[in-house]
Deep mutational scan, measured.
Amino acid sequence: RLGFCQHHDDEVLHLYCDTCSVPICRECTMGRHGGHSFIYLQE
């Protein structure tokens, strides 16, 4: 089961930031992890 983002309370962690080695949400890709390399996580 996927968890929720600690920075965006209502967002599920659907992605993994390869650059930072952390799970991220959709909102994170447009903010603090913008321009980073990421992949989609599987449930």
Rank of each mutant, 00 (worst) to 15 (best):
Y40V: 12
F38R: 08
H8I: 04
L2K: 09
G35D: 13
Y16R: 13
R26W: 05
F38C: 05
I39N: 15
E27D: 03
S37N: 10
S37R: 12
E27N: 10
G34S: 13
L2A: 06
F4A: 04
D9E: 11
G34A: 11
G35P: 06
L41P: 15
H36Y: 01
C25L: 02
F4L: 06
R1E: 06
E27G: 11
R32D: 08
Y16D: 03
L41K: 13
G34Q: 10
C5A: 01
C17E: 01
M30R: 14
V12T: 12
H14V: 07
R26I: 05
L2P: 03
R1G: 14
H7L: 07
G35K: 04
D18S: 10
D18I: 04
R32H: 12
C28G: 03
R1D: 12
F4N: 13
E11Y: 07
F38L: 09
I39G: 14
S37T: 12
L2Q: 09
H36W: 00
D9G: 12
R1W: 03
I39K: 15
Y40G: 15
D18L: 04
T19A: 06
C17M: 01
C5P: 01
L13A: 04
F4T: 08
E27W: 06
M30S: 13
L2Y: 11
V12G: 04
C25P: 02
D10Y: 07
H33W: 01
V12E: 14
I39A: 11
D9H: 15
Q42F: 08
R26G: 10
T19C: 03
S37P: 11
S37G: 10
E11A: 10
Q6H: 14
Y40A: 15
G3A: 03
G3P: 03
S21P: 01
L13T: 08
E27S: 12
H36M: 00
R26H: 10
C25N: 00
R26Q: 15
C5L: 00
Y16L: 10
F38T: 15
L15R: 11
R26P: 08
P23K: 15
V12S: 07
V22P: 01
Y16S: 03
Y16F: 13
T29E: 15
C28S: 02
L13V: 06
G34D: 08
T29Y: 09
E43S: 05
E11N: 05
D18F: 03
F38Q: 07
H33A: 01
H8E: 04
S37F: 05
Q42R: 11
F4K: 08
D18W: 03
F4C: 07
H7T: 08
R32F: 11
T29H: 13
R1K: 15
C25W: 00
H7E: 15
S21E: 11
C25R: 01
E11L: 03
T29G: 13
F38S: 09
V22S: 11
P23L: 03
V22Q: 15
D10Q: 14
T19H: 08
L2F: 14
D9F: 12
H8M: 07
V22Y: 06
R32K: 13
L41H: 02
C25S: 01
M30A: 14
L13H: 03
C28P: 01
V22G: 07
H14S: 04
C28D: 03
R26L: 07
M30G: 15
D18G: 10
Q42A: 11
E27P: 05
H33I: 01
H36R: 01
E43C: 03
Y16W: 06
G3N: 11
L2V: 05
H7S: 06
R26K: 13
T19Y: 09
C5Q: 01
D10K: 14
D9W: 07
R26A: 11
H8Q: 07
P23R: 12
E43H: 03
F4M: 09
H14A: 08
H14C: 06
T19E: 08
F38D: 05
R32M: 08
D9V: 12
P23S: 08
L13E: 08
C28E: 03
D10W: 07
H7M: 07
S21K: 06
Y16T: 04
E43R: 08
S37W: 03
P23G: 10
C28F: 00
F38H: 09
G35V: 04
R1N: 15
E11F: 07
F38Y: 12
D10N: 13
M30I: 11
I24W: 01
Y16Q: 14
F38N: 08
C5Y: 00
L41W: 09
C28V: 02
D10R: 13
L15W: 11
D18A: 09
